[in-house]
């Protein structure tokens, strides 16, 4: 799922570098001081996820996690994904250096979209959250595949042929990703719901009971 050196023509590579640089700059300005640790942890998770290989028939697939990163970080997930991909590129030789911009677009845009989608359709109950997260995780992978096909189309391949092959190859990845995202979010909902709900008053019911804004302020002071 990483584009290698020499696959994309220079024009596409440079354009994708420019676009991803612009998105990165916008998100860096938006990044709040309180979110630094969260972004760091999710960057580490994204960085490591590609090493977890799930055996599947004769081959094995690895997690991509754009959906989960997007769910937890929202639009700032682009920073996490760009940094994670850069380190993967230098340390693991996954993907080429010239294709770094394209790779971060391919993973970052689905992550931003997933964050937005999760915010829109997540409910307040555990079940709703888990199911939404599972669907969002799967959509994240599929979107990444479609962007991959689009990038290859821009570099002269036939769109439908590439898209069909890539989508079929990544269906199991999307399925596994959905399960992983669903379970992760359901765990976080029970253990640390403030990761999912940035402002506590709109958070889950049981969290409001135990920690009303007033009580939380008392605890803080």
């Amino acid at each position: 799922m990483h584009i290698s050196d020499g696959v994309l023509p220079p024009s596409v590579a440079i354009t994708s570098f420019a676009v991803s640089g612009a998105i990165l700059a916008i998100n860096l300005r938006k990044l709040k001081y309180e979110d630094y640790p969260k972004v760091a942890v999710m960057t580490s998770a994204f960085f490591i996820a590609s090493l977890i290989h799930v055996p599947l028939g004769p081959t094995s697939v690895h997690l991509l996690l754009p959906g989960l990163v997007g769910i937890l970080l929202g639009s700032t997930s682009f920073i996490a994904i760009t940094l994670g991909l850069t380190l993967q590129c230098f340390l693991f030789q996954f993907g080429g250096i010239t294709a770094l911009g394209a790779n971060s677009l391919m993973m970052g845009l689905p992550a931003i979209f997933c964050g937005w989608l999760f915010k829109k359709i997540k409910g307040t109950s555990l079940k709703q959250n888990a199911i939404t997260a599972a669907i969002t995780g799967a959509i994240g992978v599929m979107l990444a595949v479609i962007i991959l096909a689009l990038l290859l189309y821009l570099s002269g391949e036939e769109f439908w042929g590439v898209a069909k092959v890539a989508v079929i190859a990544h269906l199991p990845v999307a399925f596994i990703e959905g399960i992983v995202s669903g379970f992760t979010v359901s765990f976080l909902y029970r253990v640390k719901p403030e990761l999912l709900f940035n402002n506590i008053p709109n958070g889950p019911a049981h969290f409001q009971e135990t920690c009303t804004p007033h009580a939380c302020q008392d605890q803080k002071t």
């Binding site: 630094y36 640790p37 972004v39 760091a40 960057t43 580490s44 960085f47 490591i48 940094l83 994670g84 380190l87 993967q88 340390l91 693991f92």
Partner: peptide
Amino acid sequence: GGIGYILGIFG
């Protein structure tokens, strides 16, 4: 090493 880089950069 990679995790160290990430935490270091954010630190």
